[in-house]
Design a protein around this nucleic acid. Structure first.
Lengths: 161, 161
DNA sequence: ATATCTGCAAATAGTTTGCATGGCC
DNA sequence: GGCCATGCAAACTATTTGCAGATAT
């Protein structure tokens, strides 16, 4: 069955799809169109933090047949495989975003309490901290989640004027 | 109407109840038995991270009439007032715990992926980092949430043997 | 060929809300 | 006395699951 593929025109995207195929195969999962479309959708929205519902809306533009349950299942799978990241802001919805392939550094989030903007930042400042914690508490850290809440640059400027 | 009060026998607890009364009054909320019982329950379980359902079970031992909805409303209120802390571990349930009155330092969580233990640690290592982030991204940080995932000391020892 | 995946609809789980009654200030 | 808070049940929302048919390998 033929399936319209999103026009990539981007070397990075090809690399990403390769990784997706490799990772799924290695773990014994099938390579389905639904899964690729979900991943491509996330890729096309780098920097955004989408809910399952939002991903479903976007995905339906490419293939209207894809159901919401599949989107949920796919997001969960891709997240487990480390192809995408899960993000929880305590607002009752789980969000997903493309993980950073290029760097090994986990990235963190600055959440503006004024305008709700979520800004992802890449930083290795936490690495030293992680090690310190390991030593201090005898706890072997494998991962960490850091969220900063506050007021973003542009909201600060608005407040100033 | 008379209401059985949990035996305190503890100066800290009295201080805590005082704070609870003061904070509620200052914000125009009524001082009800339900609210105090919820707070005392949390206090009696310092170090644990309870779900609304769990708090409800415990609270019913003191006063079986208290409804689940009230527990939800109360936990939300106490959390907004800063009397207790909210914690989300992405397992589909929101947890609450007594906030640290003594220190200004927010505390962080070490979550063991082996046994599920959640360990709260108090540490000011993040303060420097917060400031660095503020400078670097022009973002005024007011709060942060940090979670470390990994393997706890006792699980590491079990693995070793 | 066959085990996995999908779509749909129904089920679930956690949390919220409307409303009449009860209790604090 | 008035208004906020409570309890109950019903409503809601996000997410999960069962199942029959479709699809990738």
């Amino acid at each position: 069955m033929s399936q319209k593929i999103i026009e990539l025109g981007d070397e990075l995207m090809i690399k990403f799809v390769d990784l997706y195929e490799k990772t799924l195969k290695e773990n014994g999962y099938k390579l389905t169109n639904q899964r690729r479309v979900v991943l491509e959708t996330l890729y096309n929205r780098v920097g955004e933090h989408l809910t399952a519902e939002e991903v479903h809306q976007l995905v339906k533009m490419v293939n209207p047949e894809i159901g919401l349950a599949t989107v949920y299942r796919t997001l969960q799978l891709l997240s487990e495989l480390g192809l995408i990241d899960k993000l929880n802001l305590d607002d009752g919805v789980v969000r997903y975003e493309i993980g950073e392939m290029e760097t090994k550094h986990r990235h963190h989030h600055l959440i503006c309490e004024e305008c709700g903007t979520i800004m992802g930042v890449d930083d290795d400042m936490l690495d030293a901290l992680e090690e310190a914690f390991s030593k201090k508490y005898g706890f072997k850290v494998t991962d960490h989640v850091v969220k900063f809440y506050g007021v973003c640059k542009s909201c600060l400027q608005k407040q100033g004027s």
